[in-house]
């Protein structure tokens, strides 16, 4: 098992003829992802790495039965592209695009909620279920199948942690990057809910960072609804207040959203917080040993 993506995932790549879209399509096909189609308006009839390209999402879904889309569409065109995918009937949109205006994301989220479509991201590395499918831009080869479910607000920090897991001998059920923007389609609580219900997942790794209160809410949720062990790491203990640390959502504003508050909330919920990424495999071993 896994969460959100699996062997049944039939993927459509939005923005497939672009530089990133074409390159990442190759990476996903090489990993074994079932990429059934791509969409670029005006490029219908072409093919990219053997994948047929359509002008619209409606055509693509009708012709190929795609149930998931991943979007590499540039930020200023991304919002309508995501809505188009949802309206065409896919169940999941993974929005890699970085830099979409926040109010556009708010509108997209509202529309997708009405349609019952899940969005992962935007501004995220995507999601991988090792050995099954990769719907994202992460390096597939550092991942392996196993019992650890990872959810993270970051990209390369996730790779760092997955690499630590690899060295520690722990494979993953799914690794999910939820994105670094203020408004995201899938948050920690959505991921925790899915991992709690997933048979393959035995332990959950939550990777947070400064800004907002998602980690605090996740801690509360774990106390009430999650029986599986959770371990965590929070980036940004040394971040100064009032400065945006790369991600649009990573900012301590009005004294809120500090790493310290998050670490305290997680600790109070009984969730161990690693001091460094390389400590995570040890915490996982301890958590699994306790069971």
């Amino acid at each position: 098992m896994s969460i959100f993506v699996n062997d049944d995932t039939r993927l459509c790549v939005q923005g497939i003829t672009g530089r990133d879209g074409a390159f990442q399509t190759k990476g996903m096909i090489d990993y074994g992802t079932n990429v059934v189609c791509g969409v670029t308006p005006g490029k219908g009839g072409q093919s990219v790495h053997g994948v047929p390209v359509f002008d619209t999402m409606a055509d693509a879904v009708r012709e190929t039965g795609a149930n998931t889309s991943i979007t590499f569409v540039p930020a200023r065109f991304a919002a309508p592209a995501i809505i188009e995918a949802a309206e065409a009937g896919v169940d999941l949109v993974v929005a890699i695009s970085e830099g979409i205006p926040t109010l556009d994301v708010a509108k997209v989220y509202q529309r997708l909620s009405e349609l019952g479509t899940r969005m992962i991201g935007p501004n995220c590395p995507g999601v991988i279920s090792p050995g099954k499918t990769k719907v994202g831009i992460m390096p597939g080869w550092i991942h392996s199948e196993g019992p650890v479910g990872v959810v993270s607000r970051s990209g390369t920090l996730t790779y760092e942690v997955v690499d630590s897991l690899r060295r520690g001998g722990f494979g993953q059920s799914t690794v999910l990057g939820i994105g670094g923007d203020p408004i995201i389609g899938t948050n920690f609580i959505d991921a925790l809910t899915a991992y709690e219900a997933d048979a393959q997942t035995e332990v959950i790794v939550l990777l947070g960072e400064i800004g907002g209160t998602d980690e605090e809410q996740a801690a509360q949720f774990v106390t009430e609804h999650v029986d599986k062990p959770v371990v965590s790491f929070i980036a940004g203990r040394t971040a100064p207040p009032g400065k945006r640390m790369g991600h649009a959502g990573a900012i301590i504003a009005g004294g809120k959203g500090t790493a310290q508050e998050k670490i305290e909330a997680l600790s109070e919920a009984g969730i161990p917080v690693a001091d460094r990424p390389s400590d995570i495999p040890g915490l996982i071993a301890a958590a699994l040993g306790r069971k």
């Binding site: 390369t156 920090l157 040394t238 971040a239 640390m245 790369g246």
Partner: peptide, 10 residues
């Protein structure tokens, strides 16, 4: 990457 950059500082 922003998360890894913060982690490196930390």
């Amino acid at each position: 990457g922003a998360g890894l950059a913060m982690t490196t500082m930390d």
